[in-house]
């Protein structure tokens, strides 16, 4: 397939644009912020902050990825649906993504104004694509190796050395084609190798190193690297100390051509991606005069 722009609900973006998707947790227990935006007003303030920092997309989540207390669909809806409506009212043009794997939650947030369904769990609920199609929303198709939502990887291996890349490509492309068949617009389908999901650190490093192979599928690629364990294990650093490692991985993915960056730190990631985008010749310098006077 050929690139034809990116349409995320009410907004369209050119193929030369790299987009920041800022994480906004409506959870009491997510690994990085540890509940800092659990209160709705705190989450709303976080949206205001990342919008001011230039994020094009917010990714609102009501359930942390790691194992923990079971959150029912009703509870998940209570955490995110009214909040999506409030954000939509305050920022009519902002792209709102919701991190959910449940179709019934997806339908409720789309009705409340969401543009993107970010299915971090690789199609665990097969009806999510139908919801995206029904609401003309975008969908993020991730690779998890088929694990159950909210489980940690345990002794997962892929067929051969390097097989994680082949598996990530095969599964995300199959998911993308399923979304397309369900009626989601081609330009509204994004793939994500899902670092750390169903993967050990060696897998996530290899996916980073070979991200260009995912980009070569032609589907726009989202990467979610921010402060993850593969960075922590690689450098021996705790959660609050992983920014530099995250940005190094970000730079490698940017050079390969990843289009969307799901992040905690918008400003630092934007600088990193802009710099790499310019090195790659996809973005002019902001203002170059040295030697050209």
């Amino acid at each position: 397939m050929t690139a034809a722009g990116l349409k995320l609900g009410r907004q369209a973006f050119g193929d030369d644009q790299a987009l920041m998707m800022a994480i906004v947790n409506r959870t009491p227990d997510s690994f990085f912020d540890k509940g800092a935006t659990w209160a709705e007003d705190a989450a709303f303030a976080r949206v205001a902050e990342v919008v001011a920092q230039g994020a094009e997309i917010v990714d609102i989540g009501g359930i942390k990825a790691a194992p923990g207390v079971e959150i029912s669909a009703a509870e998940e809806r209570a955490r995110v649906v009214d909040f999506v409506a409030r954000v939509r009212e305050a920022w009519p043009d902002l792209v709102i993504s919701v991190d959910t794997w449940r179709a019934e939650v997806g339908a409720a947030v789309c009705a409340a104004g969401a543009d993107v369904l970010n299915d971090a769990w690789g199609g665990a609920d097969p009806e999510l694509v139908d919801v995206a199609a029904q609401y003309d929303a975008a969908i993020v198709c991730t690779h998890t190796g088929g694990v159950t939502p909210r489980t940690r990887p345990y002794r997962i291996e892929y067929d051969e050395p390097g097989g994680v890349v082949a598996a990530a490509i095969a599964d995300t492309v199959a998911y993308a084609e399923r979304a397309l068949a369900a009626g989601v617009a081609r330009e509204s389908i994004v793939i994500d190798p899902a670092h750390d999901f169903g993967k050990n650190t060696f897998h996530s490093l290899e996916l980073t190193r070979r991200l260009g192979e995912m980009v070569a599928t032609g589907w726009p690629v989202l990467v979610s690297l921010s402060n993850k364990d593969f960075v922590g294990e690689t450098l021996g650093l705790d959660v609050g100390e992983r920014l530099v490692g995250t940005l190094a991985a970000t730079a490698v993915c940017a050079l390969a051509g990843a289009r969307i960056y799901r992040v905690h730190q918008v400003v630092e990631t934007r600088q990193t991606v802009d710099m790499v985008w310019s090195i790659a010749g996809r973005r002019p310098p902001l203002r170059a005069i040295r030697g050209l006077q």
Partner: peptide, 13 residues
């Protein structure tokens, strides 16, 4: 030289 298209910036200096 900054007048040349090959050396265009986002903000024209």
């Amino acid at each position: 030289l900054a007048l040349l298209p090959a050396y265009a910036s986002i903000e024209d200096p």
